Simulated scan of single mutants.
Amino acid sequence: MKKALIFSLLAIGQILFAQELALVKEKSTMGYIDRSGKYIIYPTFDAAKSFSDGLAAVKIKQLWGFIGKDGKMLIEPSFTNIREFHDGICVVEKDGAWMYINKKGEKLTMPSSEKLYDFNEGLAFFKINNKIGAFDTAGKVIIREEYDVIKPFQNGFARASKNSKWGIINIKGEIIVPFEYDDLGEYSNGITWAQKDKSFGLVDGKDFKVIDGVDKIWDFNNQPLTYAKKNGKIGFVDKTGTWIIEPQFEKARSFSQNLAPVCLKNKWGYIDPTGNFVIKPEYNDAEVFSSDNLAPVRGKGWGFIDNTGKIVIPMGYEISASFGFGEKNKGFNQGVSRVKKGGKWGFIDTSGNLIGDKWFYNAELFQN
């Protein structure tokens, strides 16, 4: 019986930790709701931040502390400035000094740095004499300080610059793409775009294949095709650099759910991977489809269409910032979209119903 109770409590704790909550503002106070619109933590805070890594910063009497998803204070307010937890560690300011703390609020000893950086994929950067390296959560230096710039890691890889040239490194500090390019894109499934002198092309391993006449290439974003510009027009190339859809569009965005938004004659529509229009260009703007198979389109305000082009949610909204998937997509994520109407923010479901039947003075994205 005792074991069953322990397992039940553990299961409840895991569910609570996994639950995504959104920070919302009611007049002058802030609280947190779940995806049904129910308050999990009632609005009692004058200032607060979104959840990150299971904790959220809240301000009480000019000092910041951290709460858990049950609303209980886990780290007492004692900080004058805070960032967010990542990999169990947060950068905070106390008594005029910046430092790292763990989830118990304990100060951590880390390598010295001219600036403190947030953790990202298990590493934090450090700067010595304007050179960048990285250390892990135990404070062990993994990448020595030899780079001018290191961009945030994504899926274990990061763009880095040394001696005015760009390359790709992994989280072990190993060089994946040599430092011989003037610009580079994100590394995705073993490939990235690159610029060398005035030529643009694709890097597959250590091989650079120039795509003639191209003057801009966008990231693949884990898709088999990406878009590129040639002679002022945009088309789509595959990972060998072959034009699959010839340059003909004024603007474009990434493929998602096998459809890509493109602009032709100042109107947006959607094409399939063969370049044929599935949804004719008739909108003032359009964003990529989410996994909910809905995409935001703009006419008189923003609404949402399905992958046949049918308007599912009528226009009249402003739409939110990125939910963090695809190409910084604006719109739905796991059945919920953040929208603004009449000067207030709220969340709608895939049928256009207002979740919780309530609008807020402000509402942030759902975070874990």
Rank of each mutant, 00 (worst) to 15 (best):
Phe157Asp: 13
Ala158Asn: 07
Arg159Pro: 00
Lys162Ile: 02
Lys162His: 13
Asn163Lys: 14
Ser164His: 15
Ser164Pro: 00
Trp166Pro: 05
Gly167Val: 09
Ile168Val: 13
Ile168Pro: 00
Asn170Phe: 00
Ile171Asn: 15
Gly173His: 05
Glu174Asp: 12
Pro178Met: 02
Glu180Ala: 09
Glu180Trp: 03
Tyr181Met: 01
Tyr181Glu: 09
Tyr181Trp: 07
Asp182Lys: 03
Gly185Asn: 05
Glu186Arg: 11
Ser188Arg: 14
Thr192Asn: 02
Thr192Glu: 01
Trp193Gly: 02
Asp197Glu: 15
Asp197Ile: 11
Lys198Gly: 01
Ser199Asn: 13
Gly201Ile: 02
Leu202Trp: 10
Asp204Glu: 14
Asp204Met: 07
Lys206Gly: 01
Lys206Trp: 05
Lys206Glu: 11
Asp207Lys: 14
Lys209Ile: 09
Lys209Tyr: 10
Val210Glu: 15
Asp212Gly: 04
Gly213Glu: 14
Val214Phe: 06
Asp215Gly: 01
Asp215Ser: 06
Lys216Arg: 14
Trp218Ala: 11
Asp219Ala: 09
Asp219Leu: 02
Asn222Pro: 00
Leu225Ser: 13
Thr226Lys: 11
Tyr227Ile: 10
Ala228Cys: 09
Lys229Tyr: 08
Lys230Cys: 07
Gly232Asp: 15
Ile234Asp: 08
Ile234Phe: 11
Lys239Cys: 01
Gly241Cys: 01
Thr242Trp: 10
Thr242Ser: 15
Ile245Met: 11
Ile245Gln: 08
Ile245Asp: 07
Glu246Ala: 04
Pro247Gly: 09
Gln248Leu: 01
Phe249Trp: 06
Phe255Thr: 11
Gln257Thr: 07
Gln257Lys: 14
Leu259Lys: 06
Leu259Cys: 08
Pro261His: 05
Leu264Ser: 03
Asn266Val: 06
Lys267His: 01
Lys267Met: 03
Gly269Pro: 03
Tyr270Leu: 00
Ile271Cys: 03
